[in-house]
Write a protein that binds this DNA or RNA. Structure first.
Length: 1059
RNA sequence: GGGCGCGUAGCUCAGGGGUUAGAGCACUCGCCUGAUAAGCGAGAGGUCGGUGGUUCGAUUCCACCCGCGCCCA
């Protein structure tokens, strides 16, 4: 739009009228990189202040390194960027280190896939060292993709100074944490039944099984099996006791049966044969029990202690086994009220059996296959063995019923294979011992949304179980425990630093990974024979233990940065998706409570999950989401940030994102474009006028429009500040469109002429207009910088010539005028104009057609006097008349302010409301009214207008005021209307022809006679408005850019040419 | 079965003991313009999931029910 010749001397870099935001963003990002703006934004804020630390501490939740980022990461990333940018501008130092979660099953499984091997045995065959070496490389494969997305989304984070959980320093800190817990007696080793994945050959932690939706529907056999009780005196004959199970594969390991002590059991008989089951279950087995009759009834306690014959012989003769035991957990909901117990495969089973001195038998190997202890099934996967076991039992005649049930069953979150429950030797953190303390500390945390604190997270803490932190795997931090290999000389050594290892083993490991660490072996000092050795227990740590360790481990605490950590713990802020209440949020809480007796973070946002528009999970296979890269390249990162962060996600809800990205297009239109348009207007005219605007710091002399928009700016800054302080991010975004509207569609539109007015006599007013708009834009850019980091950067740097808006201080609202009265009045004026325009629309009177009078009736009409001109201009009337006399336009209606009056009068409210509706009230003339025996004073009622019929009127301010438009059109008004129509036609032709806004033109036109008369009457105005040096009407010979134009129903021919 | 969240316009969602329940999108109609058609405005569109209760008054609070989502048994 700008002539190239002018560019050199421009006051501001020209703003594209049709900006390509993705391109602008990339330019901005390139400048950030080139000028190291991020680094400077961190480093120029001091780390310490008057009151100790000046750091705003942010923890980056480490993502699994071996996966590609998706929308969920983008959401988290935007928040991880927005909040730190805000606090940086507020003057805090906000370090942001990227973290990589390198260890654990995801990494191992990826490597197995890449290497074409599967399971422990094959890994061992392949070689643990090579395997781990591969893992180490594999987990860094996607770092570049991550860096691309994170950078492209405009997220500032330090990749150079990142941390990896596989770094020696990180792992040493983790080792330290383990030792601290050990010293506090919070670590123990035990036999526990755990969810076990035979596919990955490892137990899972209890929260791993609950992360995301690991439960899915599964069909399983359910078997009702008969166990023959050993005969006892008084038995009416042979008795079979029933038991029900959905895991037939555990029957070979059956070691006991459990009954509920208070449950009623029925003995039923058919001929010589007796069955025993809960009375409550009789109905369910009606079919199988046909012909049986009840012969006796007894309590569970009566049965306890009886012995029976196992259905399989494998563990016959096991100490204390094969007895009926009483246990409280037995219920009659499912099955027969008698539970088959296999202590190797059930948590309750284990507890009860151990209590009764029954040893644990686990005839299943690490891969989920039966061992030689059960010869017929040896080598068969337990789930696959179900079939054969059922067949064998049927053949033995001990199956009463074989059915199939569909139930929710937990699956391995990595391989999607069903989990089994299995007793394994594991290492535990005794969370149950300090869970009350966690619940207490949790009260200090500000959760967003608030319900998570006592809901999802609070309940989770209340039911916290001991945490199984060992994994029988390879790629992870080693459990730093060495044990004697000879039980006769027991000894356990736990190490908490490289130095301690060096002291005992004589070497300081350069790498703590297996198998190198396993090679550290030394003679057991407690063994006088000198034969037994201290060997490391084989397990590695659950990688979640490392995620919970990141606050201190990323700093190599306590070996380095001791003071820095202690001064800056806990974090001020973290954010992740809501399921991390069971993951990272939880592990942070566990470790910080146990190690430091402190919360790990003060404020936390838990956002929801991005779904497709049918609320289905986003799936690469289904391609049910817009390609992120395409979105970034079409609409830009600012639009995407606006879309995602102002969504219900931030309230913990799900976001149903349409595949066509229309929400993102809308965010661009509503959130980004209006700001750009205001800026583009400013630079266009400032450059034409050669005006250099300056930041306003006084406003005593400026007009009401300027004061109004400055006061509005103050309000929006205050509002955004309050919401960002409260971590209410959508709330902050929500304030912006209303402000855009006031700026673009009121301030600029009503001030437009001031920007191109001739300088004579109005220079100050013009400068005021530029200064005001400049002040608004610069202030707004600062206040929106965290929310729209790119577009604000471009605009701010163009306007101010400074290096970066992100190096600026947060705008000071008090530097702008506070004028609530003016804002309220002007907003009322806008309301009045909207009402007046609605009359025009209704009467089909185009805005360009001037009208004589607008009458405004309102109790505070007097205060509107000074706005008459603004209203007249907006509504296009010659005169504005103000009145407080409602009788002019209608009658008075009483509107009781029920919220105030209700509580005051109580039950009398009913008659008060009735009286007000039927008009039975009296004005006492002193500002009070009476009705139904009650007198109402100021603030307790409003008077509203009931408009008379037949008027061209519209109500405003909730009915408190009325505007009446004189819709008579006389010849003079008609002519003026034609002239304005003509001006508009010329202007749009100019624009279509690509003329510059300052180009002088010549106009030729062929028009009907009545229009010609109008143009003649208003020739000077037309020429001035269109920058025409010449206007020839109906003189033929049209030259230049010619068009036919519809002029409010009359066709004319028009030609314009540059003068 | 339990916990948490949710049910408001065709869609996505705000709101909140008070008579006239809002926004954006979509729809219909219209409009300004020497910045912005990726613009501005108006209209239509709702027994606020259901049933009871508390209350002068319930969409809002309470109970129960129905439905959806997540988590857990």
């Amino acid at each position: 739009m700008t002539h190239p010749a002018e560019t050199a001397s421009l006051a501001y870099p020209p703003a594209e009228a049709s900006p390509d935001f993705p391109r602008i963003e990339e330019e901005v990002q390139a400048a950030w990189k080139r000028d190291r703006i991020f680094e400077e934004s961190v480093s120029f804020r001091p780390a310490t202040g008057d009151a100790g630390t000046n750091e705003f501490v942010f923890y980056d939740g480490p993502p699994f390194a071996n996966g590609l980022p998706h929308y969920g990461h983008l959401v988290t990333g935007f928040v991880k960027d927005l909040v730190p940018r805000y606090h940086t501008m507020k003057g805090r130092r906000v370090e942001r280190r990227f973290g990589w979660d390198c260890h654990g099953l995801p990494a191992e499984l990826q490597s197995e896939k890449e290497l074409g091997i599967s399971g422990r045995q094959e890994i061992l065959a392949y070689g643990m060292e090579r395997f781990n070496e591969h893992c180490k490389v594999s987990v860094q494969r996607f770092t570049h993709e991550w860096e691309y997305y994170v950078t492209r989304q405009g997220r500032w984070v330090d990749f150079q100074n990142d941390y990896k959980t596989m770094d020696l320093s990180f792992m040493e800190s983790v080792m330290w944490a383990f030792k601290r817990l050990w010293d506090k007696g919070l670590i123990y080793e035990g036999y526990r039944v755990v969810p076990y994945s035979w596919a990955v050959q490892s137990p899972l932690s209890n929260f791993e099984t609950r992360l995301d939706n690991s439960y899915r529907e599964r069909q399983d056999p359910a078997l009702t099996v008969k166990f023959r009780l050993d005969p006892r005196d008084g038995d009416p004959g042979p008795i079979d006791i029933l038991a029900w199970t959905t895991t037939p594969w555990t029957l070979p390991s059956n070691l006991a049966l459990a009954v509920g002590p208070e449950i009623d059991y029925a003995l039923v008989r058919k001929g010589d044969h007796h069955l025993l089951l809960a009375e409550a279950a009789l109905g369910k087995y009606a079919k199988e029990l046909e012909g049986y009759e009840p012969v006796a009834s007894m309590k569970g306690t009566d049965l306890a202690g009886r012995t029976y014959q196992p259905v399989f012989p494998f563990f016959q003769g096991t100490e204390n086994a094969h007895k009926v035991l009483a246990a409280d957990f037995v219920a009659t909901g499912d099955g027969v009220g008698i539970v088959h117990m296999a202590p190797g495969f059930g948590e309750d089973d284990l507890n009860v059996c151990v209590a009764h001195g029954i040893p644990v038998k686990v005839p299943v190997d690490v891969a989920g296959k039966f061992t030689a202890e059960v010869p017929p099934y040896e080598g068969i996967n337990v789930i696959e063995a179900n079939k054969q076991i059922i067949q064998d039992l049927k053949a033995a005649g001990v199956v009463l019923r074989h059915e199939t049930i569909v139930h929710n069953y937990p699956h391995c979150w990595r391989t999607d294979t069903p989990l089994i429950y299995k007793a394994v030797n594991s290492w535990y953190v005794e969370v149950s011992r300090f869970k009350d303390r966690m619940a207490e500390l949790n009260k200090q945390i500000n959760w967003i949304p608030g319900h998570v604190k006592d809901g999802l997270f609070g309940n989770w803490l209340e039911n916290a179980r001991d945490w199984n932190i060992s994994r029988n795997r390879f790629w992870g931090a080693p459990i730093p425990v060495w044990k004697s290999d000879d039980a006769r000389y027991p000894r356990v050594d736990v190490y908490g630093s490289l130095e301690e290892i060096e002291r005992d083993f004589g070497v300081r490991p350069a790498d703590l990974h297996r198998p190198g660490i396993d090679a550290l072996v030394r003679p057991n000092p407690d063994d006088p024979t000198g034969k037994s050795m201290m060997r490391r227990v084989e397990d590695v740590l659950d990688c979640w233990f490392e995620s919970g360790s990141m606050p201190f481990a990323q700093l190599h605490y306590p070996f380095e940065n001791k003071e820095q950590f202690e001064k800056n713990f806990p974090a001020d802020f973290i954010v992740e998706y809501v399921a991390q209440t069971r993951g990272w949020f939880y592990t942070l809480m566990v470790l910080s409570t146990a190690l430091f007796d402190s919360v790990p973070f003060k404020n936390v946002i838990c956002h929801g999950v991005v779904l497709d528009e049918h609320k289905q999970k986003l799936s690469k296979r289904l391609r049910n989401y817009p390609d992120p890269q395409e979105v970034l390249n079409t609409y830009g990162a600012d639009a995407l940030r606006w879309y995602l962060v102002s969504s219900p996600l931030m309230a913990g809800g799900d976001l149903a994102m349409p595949k066509d990205a229309r929400g993102i297009a809308q965010a661009l239109r509503q959130g980004v474009l209006p700001l750009w348009n205001a800026y583009s207007f400013f630079t266009l005219y400032a450059n034409i006028d050669g005006v250099k605007a300056r930041q306003r710091d006084s406003w005593d002399q400026v007009g009401s429009l300027d004061r109004y928009i400055l006061a509005k700016t103050r309000q929006v800054v205050e509002g955004v500040t309050a919401r960002l302080d409260a971590f209410d991010l959508p709330g902050a975004y929500a304030l912006v469109p209303g402000y855009y509207d006031a700026l673009n569609n009121w301030y600029i539109r009503r001030s437009r002429q001031r920007f191109w007015r001739d300088a004579d006599g109005a220079a100050q007013d013009k400068q005021d207009a530029y200064d005001t708009l400049f002040t608004c834009l610069v202030t707004l850019c600062k206040a929106l910088a965290p929310m729209l980091p790119h577009v604000t950067e471009r605009i701010y740097t163009a306007l101010t010539g400074e290096k970066s808006v992100h190096l600026a201080d947060w705008p000071d609202a008090s530097a702008l005028p506070a004028d609530a009265k003016l804002v309220a009045e002007m907003d009322l004026v806008r309301d009045i104009c909207a009402a007046a325009m609605s009359i025009r629309e209704q009467k089909q009177l185009r805005t360009r057609l001037p009208l004589r009078t607008l009458t405004i009736v309102h109790p505070d009409a007097a205060t509107l006097e000074s706005y008459s001109q603004i209203i007249a201009g907006e509504v296009n009337v010659k005169a504005v008349t103000l009145s407080t006399d409602i009788a002019l336009v209608g009658s008075r209606q009483l509107a009781v302010n029920a919220a105030v009056v209700g509580p005051k009068v109580g039950p009398a409210m009913k008659s008060v409301m009735a009286a007000s509706k039927t008009g039975q009230w009296t004005d006492n003339g002193d500002g009070t009214v009476s009705l139904a025996g009650v007198t109402l004073g100021a603030g307790e009622f409003d008077i509203r207008v009931q408009t008379n019929q037949g008027l061209d009127a519209a109500r405003f301010a909730g009915g408190k005021g009325v505007v009446v438009l004189d819709t008579t059109v006389d010849a003079e008004l008609e002519k003026e209307g034609w002239a304005r129509d003509f001006v508009r036609a010329v202007q749009s032709t100019r624009k279509d022809a690509g003329f510059h806004v300052t180009d002088r033109i010549r106009i030729g036109a062929t028009v009907p006679a009545e229009v010609a008369a109008a143009l003649e009457a208003h020739a000077e105005t037309v020429k001035r408005e269109t920058l025409a040096v010449d206007l020839k009407v109906n003189q033929g010979g049209l030259t230049g850019v010619a068009t036919k134009v519809d002029l409010s129903g009359t066709e004319i021919e028009l030609a314009i040419a540059k003068a």
